[in-house]
């Protein structure tokens, strides 16, 4: 068993609020906490008439999800506890605050807690006269077989989905139009990850799963959900080939233009991620898949989990424009 993780915190029960205070202290020019609910954070400047985009989920995945609130991305976020869905009320508060009269799209990952809380927030918002649609991200190919995509978990592909939703909303599209384009992006996005070392809950410091010194797990979820294969540690090239193969077996990307994301889970260095990127680009070239846009770095993490994921989104002309559109949040310049 791995030893207890060391954490730089003050009060184990107040880490989420302590973090939010820090983020808001630094980025108070672009983000604000809502008076009605301190776990709802929205942009200080909202764009009149634009369809609102609200995202959210459990904490512990920073920069997700608050790091995707900004110009050309989401307008509001509901912040849950570590690896736990927010309750419906911060979601409802964020939705009400960002609604500019043309409705709000709620985007969240496919987890039972998030499904319940976001759908309940949608129902409450509708009771209060807001027009709301929900979009559930399910990009993790390892979490359910082909044909059961609706059962898959949402992981790093969420970043592409937010980007498309935010860019589409800025074109002045209606809620239905934003939904349709974003759902296309969602359906054309696939991710698979590997884990080399576990993460811990910051409150306890205890590793949430164990993995042998020479092992890795393919398909493990971002909260330590079991993957599909426990194997001997592979080289970056072998991992890149294996991940590309798993994704391309699941969805036909051959001959397409794609956006790719090589995401670090927290403890895998950029050095490693760039090696993987290069190996992955070779694997894609062999399949005649053209990389239109690449992202490498920590986009959705799991504390100090070691490992990475590869995300691919097929692009048509519309999605190319959406992925290329400018975006600016407290954490990213797109």
């Amino acid at each position: 068993m791995k030893q207890m993780a060391k954490k730089l915190i003050n009060h184990p029960d107040e880490i989420i609020d302590d973090m939010l205070v820090g983020i808001l202290r630094m980025h108070g020019d672009v983000l604000r906490r809502c008076e009605d609910d301190p776990r709802a954070v929205v942009r200080t400047t909202l764009e009149p008439g634009k369809v609102g985009i609200v995202i959210g989920g459990g904490s512990g995945h920073e920069p997700a999800f608050i790091g995707y609130v900004g110009e050309g991305l989401a307008d509001g976020v509901a912040v849950g506890n570590i690896f736990a869905s927010p309750s419906p009320y911060p979601i409802l508060t964020a939705a009400k605050e960002v609604d500019q009269g043309n409705g709000v799209l709620l985007i969240y990952g496919n987890y039972s807690g998030d499904n319940m809380n976001f759908s309940m927030a949608a129902e409450l918002a509708e009771m209060d006269g807001h027009q709301v649609k929900e979009l559930v991200v399910h990009d993790d190919v390892a979490s359910a077989p082909k044909g059961e995509e609706h059962k898959r978990r949402g992981i790093a592909g969420e970043v592409f989905v937010y980007k498309v939703a935010g860019a589409k909303a800025r074109t002045g599209a209606s809620l239905d139009e934003v939904y349709a384009t974003t759902e296309k992006a969602n359906n054309w996005t696939r991710t698979i990850g590997i884990a080399l070392e576990p993460c811990s809950l910051p409150q306890t410091g205890k590793p949430i799963f164990s993995i042998g010194p020479d092992e890795m797990e393919i398909g493990m979820g971002v909260h330590g959900e079991p993957g599909i294969h426990r194997v001997k540690l592979m080289s970056a090239e072998e991992v890149a080939n294996r991940l590309v193969e798993a994704i391309c077996e699941d969805f036909d990307y051959d001959g397409s233009d794609v956006a790719v994301l090589v995401n670090g889970l927290g403890a895998t260095s950029l050095l490693e991620l760039y090696i993987l990127y290069d190996n992955m680009a070779d694997a894609l070239a062999k399949r005649n898949i053209r990389i239109h846009r690449s992202f490498v770095g920590e986009y959705i993490t799991s504390q100090e989990m070691s490992g990475c994921s590869l995300t691919m989104m097929k692009l048509d002309e519309e999605l190319k424009a959406m992925i290329d559109a400018p975006g600016k949040t407290c954490c990213f310049h797109f």
Partner: peptide
């Protein structure tokens, strides 16, 4: 509606939204 809100705000997990939905 207020009872549903009180229930959900007191209990996270899945029990909150489930009984909260019934009350709602």
């Amino acid at each position: 509606k207020v009872c549903a809100k009180a229930f959900i705000q007191a209990v996270g997990a899945s029990i909150g939204p489930l009984y909260g939905t019934a009350l709602l």
